[in-house]
Design a protein around this nucleic acid. Structure first.
Lengths: 343, 343
DNA sequence: CTACGCTTTTGCAGCGCTGCAAAACACAGC
DNA sequence: GCTGTGTTTTGCAGCGCTGCAAAAGCGTAG
């Protein structure tokens, strides 16, 4: 592989200093039109391309941000990631993906002191099993924005929707349809399950607001929020003496799994059991039945996260950690309100 | 932000040269146990972490590979990507994602001369609208492995399954179920649609092998392979005077869209229309009905692609471009063979 | 003609690491 | 004690770029 063209080569050809070439290439001010043209010609002639590695080293920054998510093949994350990548690209940043597979150790290692620091200028993190300790121990110089899970302690930003309010809205929707034995699938009653617990809280609040009491045996916890978990939990619910007549699922995937179970056991959605999901992934818009769901504004979450992170990266003194709320709405589809007559 | 600890700092504390520290850190041979220990202690004490940027520059490589895919939120790609990331990590490589949104211009720019070269040591590319010209024009020094689409011209590797054989298998399955008016959704009869055309070819071969003739009006082309495309194409098919009794969809997403249309128009799958998909994404294992599909060995595709790319990166003289075939199989589910009785 | 302020260009050091080749050391054999 | 061989350690240059501060150029005013 032949040597690459360097700044110096261009400088020589153009008869200026390499520093001037650098100025031209980076579009800095205070370069006369004459020089700029001459340099540009030399650049074109030699086919010069800046060496990103060298620039990174000299500037002490990498122009990359890392996005850490549990599972890449979870539609919610891949949809979100897609928007993050677009938003980052607009500002000239590349995105490095890291999958943790939900492994708390891996998550901890990532934000702990150092890690592969310098490979990225900041991190957007969607943790699953991260406890408060890990956040406290983290490298404080690493700009950080957290998605979804935990609330901010002031040293980083947190972007998400109001899980309690959203869950309450979802549950109220089921209640208002006349359902009274409402199950919830996805609780995680342990330290790392904060997000799940907030949804359970909303579930309870909705009951309280309507003067009802949730049945504890209908609140099912699951290790993850995926299809198999939903399917399994639903099987359990259907085996109860008194099965539910509605289910609030903590993700659309869980809802898809649950619906699969319901249908395969010969029952109908929503006639026998109404199902509501969470996330509004594309799957739910084309499934049979389509899924009523809580739809967070993903585009907004992504761009907000990227904007805040880039702000953090470029700030001298770290800005205060904000708690940022993205809007959400309830989207009614067939899994609760029934099928519209075939056209 | 305080200055980071450097090799030199460690060297000073340990009373050795910085080069020796480097040797220890990188685990090079020929360091006495005594020195190694002493250096290690200094490293620990100062909390030294190598500066990846500097290492990259000195070595002239970045330790990153880029994966270029059309859409990140397409389950097939995100599932594949997940495996790619895992495989790359095993060899100490990071993965940089680039979404092209299927934009041929973007795709071309990526492999064309230079681009953000040096930011990655090689590329795994899943092109959509790339023509032969773009491949010919590309930077020949960039190690490249292509997935799915195009066949190799000898200067890069190509990994994929045998699309013709797989499509033929899928179609024969439908024929053998007694279906005679079989539609195909996903043809792309233009330069950049090679992969689609190979599937159409398999579709035709299957008919020929059984002494049948495919009906041309049942071969529908679609711009992409997603749910809306499938739904729309199916609407068109159902509006025909003689609708099909089976559909071969060029992706599971297309199948999901098609099934959605069929069901919402009051017909049954597979009783009225049997549907077969392609890719074996998780959605199809939990949809209603579950989807019969061609299941490529994604794990194998991913690891093969990564292995070949790393080989290419580390080779002095470029290895010959191989045509690598991953295995696939037909997975029969409800969308063709019907529902098993509810348990 | 000189002095001054502003714009443009330059030179140099250095980001932190590794490649290379030479230097230092250790040990065995004569 | 000296030489030769192999192992361990070192020194230096340099990867290609940018930050910084100084130098050069240029136009205007005194």
């Amino acid at each position: 592989m032949r040597r690459e063209v360097t700044l110096r080569d261009v400088a020589e050809l153009a008869g200026v200093s390499s520093r001037t070439v650098s100025n031209v290439v980076n579009g800095y001010a205070n370069v006369t039109e004459r020089t700029r043209e001459r340099v540009q010609r030399a650049v074109d002639e030699l086919g010069y391309r800046p060496n990103v590695l060298a620039r990174n080293l000299a500037q002490g920054r990498s122009g990359q941000i890392a996005v850490v998510i549990p599972y890449l093949d979870t539609p919610y994350f891949s949809e979100l990631l897609q928007s993050v990548i677009r938003a980052a690209r607009v500002s000239g940043y590349n995105v490095l993906i890291d999958q943790t597979d939900g492994d708390p150790e891996h998550e901890r290692a990532f934000i702990a002191h150092g890690s592969r620091r310098l490979l990225f200028d900041g991190v957007i993190f969607s943790p699953l099993g991260l406890d408060q300790q890990a956040l406290t121990d983290r490298d404080p110089s690493l700009p950080l924005v957290i998605l979804g899970e935990r609330s901010s302690d002031g040293s980083f930003d947190h972007v998400g929707i109001d899980d309690v309010a959203a869950s309450r809205l979802a549950t109220e929707h089921l209640i208002d349809l006349g359902r009274r034995r409402i199950a919830a699938i996805g609780d995680q009653p342990y330290a790392t399950g904060e997000a799940a617990q907030r949804r359970t809280q909303g579930f309870r609040e909705a009951h309280a607001a309507r003067g009802l009491t949730p049945r504890e045996e209908l609140i099912i916890s699951t290790p993850r929020f995926n299809r198999p978990d939903g399917a399994q939990a639903m099987n359990h619910l259907l085996d109860l003496a008194e099965p539910p007549d509605a289910v609030f699922c903590y993700s659309d995937l869980v809802a898809l799994g649950a619906i699969r179970t319901i249908v395969s056991r010969g029952l109908r959605v929503p006639e026998d059991i109404a199902v509501i999901g969470y996330d509004d992934i594309e799957d739910g818009r084309f499934s049979n039945p389509t899924i009523t769901t809580i739809s967070p504004d993903k585009e907004m979450i992504a761009t907000t996260a990227v904007d805040r992170l880039l702000l953090r990266i470029s700030s001298e003194s770290p800005p205060p950690g904000l708690e940022l709320r993205a809007p959400f709405k309830l989207v009614e589809r067939e899994s609760t309100t029934g099928r519209v007559s075939p056209r």
